[in-house]
């Protein structure tokens, strides 16, 4: 088995992460230094703060990853970085560092699509997961259902028509004054509230595989304007339930329609506890094999970037050093 060692850097949003992965799935180090505390003051990711913080943190995180893997430069066979999608300034920090290391260490550079990285997170834990797989990718910037028949062959089954699920969580949390990041805040507060307290609409629930969360967000705002005394915990729990209902129902529908063997969850919102438990229950009820990855592999991390990089390198060879960062990069689809 090919035990090529890939060092990967992830700086597309607010996590600075460096990982070292051997043979595409054996994680030797996966260090994540979150900038969330920095951004909490501003109520969201502030791009300029993000790029500066990545710059300051990267060297420390890199050294920690090498120490944890008990490796030095000579042990690394390739260096990878997320080159999109994400915030341009933040992406550039990781891409520039990876290119510099590739030149200094005389190893190939691989630019990785962040979304493809999330898909590969699946195979870090279960390289044998039965295919085809329907993956629900949910994060602050994305909500998509991806059908994966084999590595590199992705079909987009559905995606959001307006806000991403994580964005809706963030915006509702902002409106309720719950702070940033909004997803974990709503997850926590929901524990104390009733999920059936308020019947928020389920956007596009019975309509195809696309998503719409903007109207659900607005319905929370409208409800609060009319019922200002409602407990935040009930609002949070009921809104979370509405979002989870839609995400779970559409994943199962997509898996059924495409006769998938398994379903899988990925992206930052996949760390949400209610989504994780409801997703696993629904998959079991539908007779699908199911993977809900460790939370560390759902949120942004460089291990998944290293996994995707190892495969991309074997398929496409190294990425040119003149290839830059692409903030609006799309997942490569087969149709």
């Amino acid at each position: 088995m090919n035990q090529q060692v890939v060092l990967a850097i992830e700086t597309s949003c607010d996590e600075t992460s460096v990982a070292i992965v051997a043979g595409g799935s054996r994680v030797l180090a996966n260090v994540v230094s979150s900038q969330v505390d920095l951004h909490a003051r501003f109520g969201g990711v502030v791009p300029e703060v993000a790029s500066r913080a990545h710059l300051e943190l990267l060297e420390v995180v890199l050294q920690e990853a090498l120490d944890e893997a008990e490796m030095t430069a000579v042990d690394i066979d390739a260096v990878a970085a997320t080159h999109g999608p994400g915030l341009i300034g933040a992406l550039l920090v990781g891409v520039s560092a990876a290119k510099a290391l590739s030149v200094a260490w005389r190893v190939p550079y691989v630019g990785v699509n962040h979304m493809e990285g999330h898909l590969f997170a699946t195979f870090l834990e279960r390289p044998d997961l039965a295919r085809p797989v329907v993956v629900l990718l949910v994060s602050g910037g994305h909500t998509m259902l991806v059908h994966l028949s084999e590595l590199g062959r992705y079909r987009l089954l559905g995606s959001t028509t307006d806000d991403a699920a994580g964005e809706a969580f963030d915006k509702v949390a902002r409106y309720l004054g719950l702070g940033y990041p909004g997803g974990p805040a709503i997850d926590r507060l929901s524990q104390e509230g009733r999920a059936d307290a308020i019947a928020f609409p389920r956007g596009l629930l019975d309509d195809g595989l696309d998503f719409s969360f903007s109207g659900m967000k607005t319905s929370v705002i409208n409800y609060v304007r009319k019922h200002p005394d409602t407990a935040n915990a009930d609002l949070a729990a009921s809104f979370q339930e509405a979002v989870v209902d839609v995400l779970v129902a559409k994943t199962i529908r997509a898996a059924t329609m495409t006769k998938a063997a398994s379903v899988c969850l990925g992206g930052g919102v996949a760390a949400n506890r209610r989504l994780r438990s409801r997703f696993a229950e629904a998959a079991a009820a539908g007779g699908f094999d199911c993977l809900v990855p460790d939370r560390a592999y759902c949120t942004d991390n460089a291990a998944m970037i290293a996994a995707a990089a190892a495969w991309r390198l074997s398929q496409d060879g190294p990425t040119g050093l003149d290839d830059g960062a692409a903030p609006n990069l799309k997942l490569p689809l087969i149709d």
Binding site: P47, P85, G86, L87, G140, G141, H142, S159, T160, T161, D162, D163, A164, E167, K171, S214, P327, N328
Partner: peptide, 13 residues
């Protein structure tokens, strides 16, 4: 094409 919220990427074309 679909016009989705640019909140995450800041700028969409």
């Amino acid at each position: 094409g679909r016009i989705t919220s640019p909140t995450f990427t800041i700028a969409n074309e």
